[in-house]
């Protein structure tokens, strides 16, 4: 068996076009995951205990069960309740909801990291809860958690091939249907693997760099604070 360069060159444009669908799924899923995760995190902090506990159970349940089954569940069960969407939308929904359970925990860590004095100051200044969250807490909670959220973005990108199982023609789905047509699996699958590697490895390095920069920035801010106090 050898790698047929001509065949590889022939299918590369097709696969690059499929990468767009992969991006759509990733971006849509991440947008949903970021919003739902934030809502869950806020509910866990601010809602009455029974509702907060319910949100906690949701996070545990979604985190402990496979994305693949959640995907099948949404794909086959939603239409029974009259919700009919395209497979791509169902995929984005599954990715977003699955990752919301991870981002919720990240947000939680970020919110916990905001000093208690900030909450107390907001109360002292008679800020409304919504103003406290949007003006005081979240602007301080979110910047330090951008790197872990970035890691989940890359992880989600690598989970998009699962959407091939619900007939979305993303990278892997396109490669498999092409391979099924020609009975040649080596070239398409290798190219798909390479595309994933070429996209996710640099992103991971970027995130690591961002993480390091935020860490030093954080130290310098803390240092400045100490000096002001002194």
């Amino acid at each position: 068996m050898r790698f047929d360069l001509d065949y590889a060159a022939e299918i590369t444009p097709l696969l690059l076009r499929a990468t767009i669908t992969t991006f759509e799924a990733t971006i849509g899923g991440m947008a949903l995951g970021l919003i739902v995760g934030l809502l869950i995190a806020i509910v866990r902090f601010a809602a009455p205990p029974p509702i907060a506990r319910l949100a906690g159970i949701y996070v545990e349940f979604v985190r402990s069960t496979p994305l693949l089954i959640q995907l099948f569940f949404l794909f086959y069960v939603l239409p029974r309740y009259g919700v009919s969407t395209t497979p791509l939308v169902t995929g984005i929904l599954a990715l977003g909801l699955h990752y919301s359970s991870y981002t919720a925990e990240v947000y939680r860590a970020g919110i916990r990291g905001v000093p208690t004095g900030q909450w107390e100051a907001a109360i002292a200044l008679n800020f409304s809860p919504s103003r406290t969250w949007t003006r005081i807490i979240l602007p301080q909670a979110i910047p330090p958690i951008i790197p872990p959220l970035g890691n989940y973005l890359v992880a989600m990108f690598k989970d998009t091939p699962l959407l091939a199982t619900i007939t979305v023609s993303e990278l892997l789905g396109t490669a498999l249907s092409e391979a099924g047509r020609t009975y040649r699996y080596f070239e398409p699958l290798t190219i798909v693997g390479l595309i994933f590697l070429l996209l996710s490895y640099p992103s991971a390095i970027l995130i690591k760099r961002l993480e390091r920069r935020l860490a030093t920035e954080h130290c310098s801010v803390a240092g400045r604070g100490a000096r002001v106090q002194g």
């Binding site: 690598k158 699958l189 590697l197």
Partner: peptide
């Protein structure tokens, strides 16, 4: 193995 997707590796 970290950079590419598990499902792609499995099919590979």
């Amino acid at each position: 193995f970290r950079g590419s997707s598990l499902l792609v590796q499995l099919f590979y």
